[in-house]
């Protein structure tokens, strides 16, 4: 209502008094013509798309394209992308490791291990030769041949083996913590410990 008051009354009067537009003289005549004219059926969107005058040329064109690809003269040169074997995941991983130099490192490590193994083998074989001498006790010989590969047995029998053989054994390969000592050896170790303690105490003071 407030807005209506702001509207110029003259404008409203002019709108009301605008000249009335009337129908032409032949209005009814044209109207009856339209009424008696058969109703035009409006085609829907799908009807327009799939009308016969459009679908036939479209189908023909599609058929020509399909035939062209199926019966091509140089079809042997054509490499079907669907027939190409896809790259294997494993290959991709190997390539990426090579890039990083990991495979090279692995190979180097394997070589080192093989060399170590060979040196060990040569040591063992030399040890066996030494044991094969007649002056060595047969019981020790049996023991060594049975468990030549285990470092524990080698260390147990080290007391009876001569100095040359003892020198050949690599101490790094031996596990001293698991070593089974004889009573005599234990006593010797204890005496050594006491001596060490006795020598350390006056220095600390």
């Amino acid at each position: 209502m407030i807005m209506e008051e702001n509207i110029n009354n003259k404008l409203l009067d002019d709108l009301r008094n605008l000249p009335k537009v009337s129908a032409p003289d032949n209005f009814e005549e044209e109207l009856w013509k339209k009424i008696y004219k058969p109703e035009e059926k409006k085609e829907s969107f799908w009807q327009k798309i799939f009308s016969t005058n459009k679908i036939i040329p479209a189908a023909t064109a599609a058929a020509i394209i399909i035939i062209f690809f199926l019966v091509r003269p140089n079809s042997s040169d054509y490499e079907d992308p669907f027939m190409i074997e896809p790259p294997v995941r494993e290959d991709i991983i190997t390539v990426s490791n090579d890039d990083a130099g990991v495979s090279g490192m692995i190979e180097q490590k394997q070589k080192i291990e093989q060399q170590e193994w060979k040196t060990d083998e040569s040591k063992r074989s030399s040890l066996k030769k030494e044991l094969a001498k007649p002056e060595i006790d047969s019981s020790i010989k049996d023991n060594l041949t049975e468990s030549a590969t285990t470092p524990e047995t080698l260390s147990q029998s080290s007391g009876t083996i001569n100095d040359e053989v003892q020198f050949d054994i690599d101490k790094e390969e031996l596990n001293f913590l698991k070593r089974n000592l004889t009573d005599q050896e234990k006593q010797e170790i204890l005496e050594l410990k006491r001596k060490i303690k006795a020598s350390d105490t006056p220095k600390a003071e």
Binding site: L18, K20, V21, S22, A23, P24, F27, E30, L31, K34
Partner: peptide, 22 residues
């Protein structure tokens, strides 16, 4: 006539308005 007047004022084209009313 009322419809012709209404449609004419809405479309602003007399011929089109006559067609619409018919």
């Amino acid at each position: 006539n009322p419809l012709i007047n209404f449609v004419y004022r809405f479309l602003g084209d007399y011929e089109a308005c006559v067609d619409v009313v018919q």
